[in-house]
Nucleic acid binder design. Structure first.
Length: 399
RNA sequence: GGCCCUAUCGUCUAUCGGUUAGGACGAAAGCUUUUCAAGCUUUAAAGCCGGGUUCGACUCCCGGUAGGGUCACCA
């Protein structure tokens, strides 16, 4: 509330380019922006940066949008840079007029046959900026030269489009990946040329491949949506991603999205990159599945347990280790009369010895030495199929 | 290579000058008549190196080293 009274509302954005599927690095950037905006009661913009017509693909934009949808990261506004060309053109013209940019004659090459481009007139100065995560960062822009900001008046390039959009959209905080840290001085130069205020920067550390290199397709970066197919819950992915490069300062590790919003804090973000650990993600996912209502839980357990394969039973594995075949048969026969009443079966198991009853039951249902517990299996398999399997086990024992 | 950033168990991390350096994942071991791909218990496992500053440094400073990012008419 105070933010809105004292100064303007906070505005953040996530600006992916549709040149690939949204992967976990992008998802985390989106998450941090989202959490910050929610916490500050601000606005979260999703901006598709598709100024590169050759590399931008509709399928990737679709993938990004679908990923946001699945993750449950709601944005307040959606923009496409390809639909905003006139705006950039007007800025290019303005810069040309006020002399902060100029048309530069180029010697055409094979890759770049163009004879002229538009360059920023670099004032060649030192740029210092305060990064929320990294503190004071300073660059000498002399080495940047007069950077190209547009291929032509009608073809703006990345840096120009970003700066114009952030200005036009009133972006107050730029929260993005560390790979953009060295882009920042260029963008500040353009800001100053068009008279835009400087937003607050927060460059978050990269998510690394197991060999500590930048995450790429080659290094095993996978689309966010692939985790969906793997049975990862969106809240699990978000929870895990939040813990990569950030922590709440307590020992709690499992959070719902609203809990994350409550406790998220930019100042606790790390500086160093972090390796993505799929095993820990699995653990986080398991914890979130436990939080689900029973019905939902079964869906995920069923995903890993193949209920369609009829178990192949080995007779000697049916009885519990201190028991024998005859006893196992007796117990299963009794259980069969009790099915499908789980509570009655449990009661019987308590009396007859849990291992004696439950092990043969579980093994009969699954044919596995390790599996979900018998009650769960019966829920997944259904009453009829469960009975069939128990009967089959009894038959084997009776031979 | 230039510029910039970073540096605690294998991995994710706590520590904001004084701790037996804590937790989690994973690993290993053990327990369990077993609602066992679970749970519980236990163990191993870390301050990159060298200088300062200080009564005292993982923590602050400097220098190395290592890793990463970035140096497009891509984003």
């Amino acid at each position: 509330m105070t933010e809105e009274i004292n100064n303007k509302k906070i505005v953040v954005r996530m600006a992916p380019s549709p040149t690939g599927n949204l992967h976990i690095g992008g998802a985390r950037t989106a998450l941090f922006n989202f959490l910050f905006a929610q916490k500050q009661n601000g606005k979260f913009i999703l901006r598709i940066e598709d100024t590169d017509k050759e590399r931008s693909k509709q399928e990737f934009e679709d993938n990004i949008l679908e990923s946001f949808e699945w993750l449950g990261l709601k944005y307040d506004e959606l923009f496409r840079q390809s639909e905003r060309t006139e705006i950039y053109v007007s800025y290019v013209k303005k810069m040309l007029e006020n002399g902060s940019a100029y048309i530069s004659k180029e010697t055409p090459t094979e890759e770049n046959p163009r004879t002229e481009v538009i360059r920023l007139k670099n004032p060649n100065k030192k740029i210092d900026f305060e990064d929320v995560i990294r503190g004071e960062v300073s660059f000498d822009t002399t080495e940047l030269g007069d950077l190209v900001i547009a291929k032509s008046v009608n073809e703006p390039l990345y840096h120009l489009a970003v700066v114009v959009d952030d200005f036009e959209m009133g972006v107050t905080h730029v929260i993005r990946g560390e790979e953009h840290l060295s882009n920042t001085p260029r963008q500040i130069l353009i800001q100053e040329a068009i008279g835009a205020p400087r937003p607050i920067y927060a460059h978050i550390p990269l998510i690394l491949a197991p060999d500590r290199s930048k995450l790429s397709k080659r290094a095993g970066a996978v689309s966010v949506l692939e985790y969906k197919n793997q049975g990862i819950l969106p809240e699990s992915l978000l929870n895990y991603l939040a813990l990569l490069g950030w922590n709440p300062g307590t020992e709690q590790e499992i959070f719902t999205l609203s809990e994350l919003i409550e406790i998220f804090d930019l100042s606790r973000i790390h500086k160093g990159g972090a390796i993505f650990d799929a095993k820990k993600l699995d653990w986080v996912n398991k914890e979130h599945i436990k939080l689900l209502p029973r019905e939902e839980q079964l869906k995920f357990i069923a995903k890993e347990f193949d209920a369609t394969t009829t178990p192949v039973l080995e007779i000697e594995k049916i009885p519990w280790k201190t028991s024998n075949i005859l006893e196992a048969k007796t117990h299963l026969e009794h259980v069969l009369t009790l099915m499908p009443h789980g509570d009655l079966i449990m009661k019987y198991a308590e009396e007859a010895g849990k291992g004696n009853v439950l092990w043969p039951l579980r093994y009969a249902l699954s044919g596995l030495e390790k599996s979900p517990d018998p009650m769960t299996l019966m829920e997944i398999l259904g009453g009829e199929e469960s009975k069939k399997r128990v009967e089959a086990a009894i038959k084997i024992l009776g031979q």
